[in-house]
Design a protein around this nucleic acid. Structure first.
Length: 629
RNA sequence: GCCGACGUAGCUCAGCGGUAGAGCAACUGAUUCGUAAUCAGUAGGUCCCCGGUUCAAUCCCGGGCGUCGGCACCA
């Protein structure tokens, strides 16, 4: 019996609703024969599983539509992805969004026709010949590269046939109408930049119109949170051609930056780090010794001077400088672990296409540190680090974050035993610090395994921020050593670690996280004092002075505007507190406080307002210290 | 770097082979007002840059730069 028959036997309702089924948790076509003892679960449009199938089937419908409209176009692959699907086509002329209306119309025709998806098993050679005869060389290549054990299946929808593992729903009609083509993009065949560039069409597809509308609405909301939009609107920073990939921080943006930096500095001081500063320009010879010259030169800005025969490079990383500090004088095992922190300004020549607002730039400040320790200390140091990082992320309003564990790559330095120990220590430390991670196999640095701490931006893009990397290569290359208990020289292990990663990237994500509406301690302008009548101007100046001397960033608005306009202006600037003063407040030495996003106002004596706001504006780490005291 | 789209006033955007416009912002004046836009007036442009076609180019063509969306990259 097939799933279709079982569903029909159970009842006409299920027969209508069933799109596919799960056989012992394996998603398959409804037409699949079911064994006597199998556990069957039908998938209907209500199930989450339906989404993936709708998207996958939509990709097939898209491919059929495109081949119908643009003969000669070859199909390649077209999977379901988060929120939708895409299909990569090989065609001399790339597609443009102007092609969308025609393609979408064709897709709707195909959906309306509701042709059945039919699975066919083909013999390998047969299948290759079949696609080659149709001029589909990409499909033929895919089949050739499939493992011999793989059953080759094709799916037919009317005249149109695609190589596909399946499963599919019953017919093209099951795709429904809640889909939309969204963008075109170039994409390399098999993700390799040495291969041909294909033309990719992205679409989004949902179970019903309501879901689609909600998704489109979410995208619009995300656009409003975009750090580039907010950076402009709030006057935080700007970017321009004369310094591609470098940020011009304006007064308000720099205030935010400094608030974050001051906070980080306090946390590092308290965390047992010592801050250092290493040179921006370092001799080529150092980069040759460290291995950067060979591996990363194309990403480095090189500098020369007229009358000296020297080549210098702007540092793309801070680690060699840190080792040079470690190497000064004779180090003892008693000094380990030695934690050298640096707010290090790095320059990297990033590919032009990689630049993105202030999240991916060519000049940035890392909250870097290098911990020199023994192998036995790796686990402890990792636990300390993860705890510090978690606490800091919490303070910035990121209670949750993803962790990736990248282990040994194919090409690596160091013996397998060393890698075993380093990976073991990191894993053990994650367990102790109760960090859940996903494994990123083979993605470690050539010098050691690493943890990556990932935050997500408004549009759902993931960015690596924090990192912890174990390195037993650089101390070797730059000759770092210390005198051990046994009075012999030993090689330290080096942990590279960053919490924010780069200030630029982290602040970009922070801006999107809060959509510019920062908590009081982070807000670049904390209070706006706004007058109702000009008779209150002098008192308003007093209020501003009082708030300022309590350390609050405060602007004064005595402009010739109505209070409505002032409230609006400062609300649009996301100022957390508006202190309104009119005649009444001036007479009673009060202020009327209004919180961003709220409509309520609270009239309190000036002294109390200053005290309360100053209290509330305290950075979280200082607030905790106060509580203890 | 690759594919594609885009680049007009501070911002958001309209426009067109015949020398450029709106709203908001800015400035000036009037208004002194009680919690998300007071009114009036004024000023504001290398239409990204370079070259070509044309009597004439912001507009058409070519090249460059930048931004954006993907891909690749992210040491």
């Amino acid at each position: 019996m097939t799933g279709t028959e079982i569903a029909a036997a159970i009842g006409p309702g299920l027969a209508r609703a069933a799109l596919a089924m799960k056989l012992d948790d394996r998603l398959v076509d409804l037409a699949t024969p079911v064994a006597e003892d199998a556990r069957v679960m039908f998938v209907t449009r209500r199930d989450e599983d339906a989404l993936g199938m709708i998207r996958h089937d939509a990709a097939h419908v898209l491919a059929e539509a495109v081949q119908a409209l643009y003969p000669g176009t070859q199909v390649t692959i077209g999977p379901a992805i988060e929120n939708g699907f895409y299909y990569d086509f090989a065609r001399n002329e790339p597609f443009t969004p102007e092609d969308f209306p025609a393609i979408e119309a064709k897709m709707r025709e195909i959906v309306a026709a509701n042709t059945r998806f039919e699975r066919e098993v083909r013999e390998r050679g047969d299948a290759i010949a079949f696609f080659e005869a149709r001029g589909e060389k990409y499909k033929a290549e895919l089949i050739r590269d499939l493992p011999a054990s793989e059953t080759i299946t094709l799916y037919r929808q009317g005249e149109w046939i695609d190589l596909c593992r399946g499963p599919h729903m019953r017919g093209t009609g099951d795709v429904g109408t809640a889909f939309k083509l969204t963008k075109v993009a170039g994409a390399y065949w098999r993700g390799d930049h040495r291969n041909a560039m294909l033309s990719r069409i992205y679409g989004t597809a949902w179970r019903d119109q309501k879901e689609l509308d909600a998704y489109l609405h979410m995208l619009e909301e995300a656009e409003r949170r975009d750090h580039r939009r907010i950076g402009k609107d709030m006057g935080l920073f700007h970017l321009q051609e004369e310094a591609v990939g470098s940020v011009f921080w304006h007064p308000k943006g720099w205030k935010l930056y400094r608030t974050a930096e001051d906070y980080m500095r306090r946390r590092l001081d308290a965390g047992g780090y010592q801050e250092v500063k290493t040179p921006q320009l370092l001799d080529r010879a150092l980069w040759e010794a460290s291995g950067h010259w060979e591996k990363f030169r194309e990403h480095m800005f090189i500098a020369r001077v007229e009358d000296e025969d020297k080549t210098l490079a702007l540092k793309p990383m801070n680690c060699p400088g840190a080792v040079l500090i470690f190497n000064q004088g004779l180090r003892s095992y008693r000094e380990l672990p030695l934690r050298l922190a640096e707010f290090g300004a790095c320059h990297r020549y990033e590919p032009s296409g990689a630049l993105h607002g202030i999240m991916r730039v060519r000049a940035f400040l890392q909250d870097d540190a290098h911990i020199f320790c023994t192998e036995a200390q790796i686990a402890d140091e990792t636990v300390r680090f993860v705890e510090l990082l978690s606490s800091i992320y919490r303070d910035f309003g990121f209670p949750g974050f993803a962790v990736k564990f990248s282990d040994r790559p194919a090409v690596r330095a160091g013996s397998d035993e060393t890698w075993d120990r380093a990976e073991g220590a990191l894993k053990e430390a994650c367990a102790v610090a109760r960090v859940d991670y996903t494994l990123n196999p083979g993605e470690g640095a050539f010098y050691g395994p690493k943890l990556e701490f990932v935050l997500r931006d408004a549009i759902g893009r993931d960015w690596q921020c924090g990192t912890l990397q174990v390195d037993f290569v650089l101390p070797e290359r730059l000759g770092a050593d210390y005198v051990g208990e046994d009075s012999a020289r030993h090689r330290p292990v080096m942990l590279h670690r960053a919490i924010l990663g780069s200030f630029e990237r982290f602040l970009g994500i922070l801006i999107e996280q809060y959509a510019g509406r920062f908590p009081l301690w982070l807000a670049p302008v904390q209070v706006a004092v706004a007058t109702i009548v000009s008779d209150a101007d002098d008192y308003a100046r007093e209020v501003q002075a009082a708030l300022r001397s309590a350390g609050l960033a405060c602007v004064l608005d005595v402009s010739n505007e109505k209070i409505n306009a002032k409230v609006r202006t400062h609300s649009l600037q996301h100022v957390p507190v508006i202190a309104v003063v009119g005649r009444k407040e001036a007479e009673g030495r009060m202020v009327a406080l209004r919180r961003l996003g709220g409509e309520a106002q609270e009239v309190v004596p000036l002294e109390e307002a200053v005290r309360r706001l100053a209290d509330e504006a305290m950075p979280p780490d200082i607030a905790r210290l106060r509580e203890i005291a």
